[in-house]
Every structure is written in structure tokens, then in C-alpha cells.
Nucleic acid binder design. Structure first.
Lengths: 193, 193
DNA sequence: ATCATTTCTTAACTTAAGTGAACGAGCCGG
DNA sequence: CCGGCTCGTTCACTTAAGTTAAGAAATGAT
């Protein structure tokens, strides 16, 4: 399990054995059962997540309805808004599948960053990369219709469509579950012709 | 002009006079005329931007149509996707108004980061903050109707609606200019009652 | 295995956004 | 000052998403 993490880190910086030990000794690997709620609306939290295996999701409760806005799967990192801004969370984070997560606290990160400047650099690179990636995703969302967004998801993350309940996918695409059903039927109809 | 920048930086780190001088000597302030194109689709670029005064925008040409996805105004920072990933740009960046920009190259940033660890920390904090902020914006976009998005923009960035052409605003809201016109008329109609 | 609950799909109807076209207003450029 | 553009609005019509409701399918718990 550690190796997956070190492989990931090696894309950004190279670690000495000492540094690897420092990370290992933090004891940050957690097994989490499907359905577990990691963060509740209104809660203050210190925890950031990195998905080694499984899937977690972010959702809001708005007008009494569940609105899913993000899924994080293998090799995805998530630092909740409330950790950065130290305000109560607007949303929930929960486990879609049994998962293995790396959970770190801001305190831990501050310590690691000051102890190993390399680590700070990795965090910067990672944040910059995620920011750029998310900008692209947002742009694509804005400039596409729900149908295009679904077809795009089918191309880019086909696993998600199988792993995740339809009604959660629907709000992820910015539509209602009924519209997603209809849209899929429409696509099948088109394919036939 | 420098002072605005130093005020901004002071929110993250404190600078010595030497460090301030190092920044000043980089000569990074640029006046840019309305309409100037800073980055073209297909182009490779090294430049990141920070808006001291004015407004710049990101837009795509998709199916022959201009699709605006972002506006950056005073105190906003923009590192284009192509700078991070070193691939040709998918989009354009242009000046909506006469603006004063801080323009930095990745080389400069690498140098500053290695010379002043504090600077690296600021970049990390800034990226993390922007990432969290953009996540919120994206979530709000996904969970709102075009009308709600417009009303929200009216609250949060009322200046944008005045500063920016309607057809650019429309695609920023994920709709066509005609729909924005109609939507506004609808809101006025509701207000009367 | 059974029952209850949740999830997914379908359908009919409503509402809002997309499309194509036309018009007037404002804005350069000559 | 005029003519050509772009821009914003409006309208009629089309298309797709929201809404409400019902039933089928899958899931989970006992």
C-alpha cells in the first residue's frame, strides 16, 4: 500500500529513505467502509484525503435534496474547503465504496512542510496541477450540454458510470435522475439509427 | 502600484526590504490596452498573470462560437493550463478593459521559489486557496439553474455585469445571449409583482 | 426467503433554454 | 456625417430539462 503512495510522490519529488520513514511513521492509512460519512455539513475538520483504493464523494443538501458535486477515485486528492478556510463545512463527504484512504491533518502538513522543503514544493506543484485540471473541467462543463457532458464522462471516466448510483451521477452532471435516464435512452435510440 | 502587490503578498507572508527589492527589480508590471490578446489557442506560453487593475477573460472557440469561461479582475491570479502542462493552449486570454497586469514567467517563479522558500510557501497557500474557492464556484454552478446563477453573480460580483458585454456574460453563465436577455426580463417581471 | 426501502425507468405535462430571424441602438472607421 | 458592424433585445418555434406520479427492479435487513 505504501508503495502506491511512494510511486505517486515520485512523480513530483524523490524521497530519501529517512523521508519515507518519516511518512510511514505518521500512520495515515485508513480502511473505510462503504457508506461511512467522513465529513458532515456544519462540521469543522482538519482532515485531507488521498484515495488509494475505492471512491469517495462530495454532496450538498440543498432544498432538501442531495446534490453530488464530485467523486474522488484512485490517486485523487481532496482537501475540503473548510480545512483551508477554517469555517464550518457546507457539504458532506462520504464513502461510495469500501476504500483505503490516506488521511492527513493540517497540523501534520504544516510540520512536514517545515521539516522537508521538498514536501512543500510537492504540495505547491500538486495544488497548481489540480487547479489547472479543475479549471479545464469547469470550462468543459460550462461549454457543454448535459448530453455532451455525459458522453464526455463516458470517455474519460467510464468506470464512474458503473461504480456510482445513477441519481448521484445525475446531479454530478447538473441534471435530475429522470433526465439522465431519458438522455441515455435518447443516446441508445440514436445509436440504433 | 507596487504597494498594491505588497499589500496582497502581506496577507500570506511578510517580506524584508531585500525581498521587496528582488521582486521590484523583476520589472513585471505591464499596461495592456483593451482588446489585446495575451494568449492564443494553440500557443505555448510561460506567462502567468495577476490583475492589479482592469479585467481579463478566458474564452474558447468551440463550434465556431466564442465561449467565455472566466473573468479575472482586481487581485485575481491566473496561471494558464498550458503553463502547468506545457501543452498548446486550448483557449484565448484577452483584455476586456485597459488593464495593469503583473506578468511572470515560470522561469522567474522557479528562481524565486528556490531563492526564497517563503515565496514557495506563498504559492502553495495561494494555489490551495484558489483551488478550494474554485471548487465552491464549480459546486454552486452545478447545483444551480441559469437564473439562480445570474442572481448569484448579481450578489457576488455586481461589477462584472456592468463591466462586461452581455454575450460574454451569457456563456460565462452557461447559456446563450438570447436566454440571458429573456431571463433578465423574467426577473424584472417577477420583481414588479 | 420475504418484506420494506431505495433506486431506476417510463410517461404525460410544464417550463425554460436553444435556434433562427428581425429590429433598433450604439460604436467605430472612413 | 454617413454607412457598416457589433450588440442587445424580442418573437415564434423547437428541443430538452424539470416535475409529478406510477410502476418495475434491485438492495438490504430480518
Amino acid at each position: 500500500m505504501q508503495d502506491i503512495l511512494f510511486d505517486f510522490i515520485s512523480k513530483y519529488i524523490s524521497l530519501t529513505e529517512d523521508e519515507k520513514d518519516a511518512i510511514t511513521s505518521l500512520n495515515i492509512f485508513h480502511s473505510v467502509k462503504k457508506g461511512t460519512i467522513l465529513l458532515k455539513e456544519g462540521q469543522l475538520s482538519q482532515a485531507s484525503y488521498f484515495v488509494l483504493k475505492g471512491c469517495i464523494r462530495v454532496h450538498y443538501i440543498k432544498d432538501g435534496e442531495e446534490k453530488t458535486t464530485a467523486f474522488y477515485t484512485e490517486m485523487d486528492a481532496l482537501t475540503p474547503h473548510c480545512v483551508i478556510h477554517k469555517t464550518p463545512s457546507d457539504y458532506f463527504i462520504s464513502c461510495v465504496e469500501d476504500s483505503i484512504l490516506l488521511v492527513s491533518s493540517s497540523d501534520m502538513e504544516v510540520e512536514m512542510n517545515s521539516k522537508f522543503p521538498k514536501f512543500e514544493m510537492m504540495c505547491r506543484m500538486l495544488s497548481e496541477e489540480l487547479l489547472a485540471k479543475q479549471q479545464m473541467d469547469f470550462d468543459e462543463f460550462k461549454t457543454s450540454s448535459p448530453e455532451q457532458r455525459y458522453l464526455n464522462l463516458l470517455q474519460r471516466r467510464p468506470d464512474l458510470i458503473r461504480r456510482v448510483p445513477q441519481h448521484q451521477l445525475a446531479s454530478y452532471l447538473g441534471i435530475k435522475p429522470q433526465s439522465l435516464s431519458r438522455l441515455r435512452a435518447r443516446i441508445v435510440e440514436k445509436d440504433k439509427r
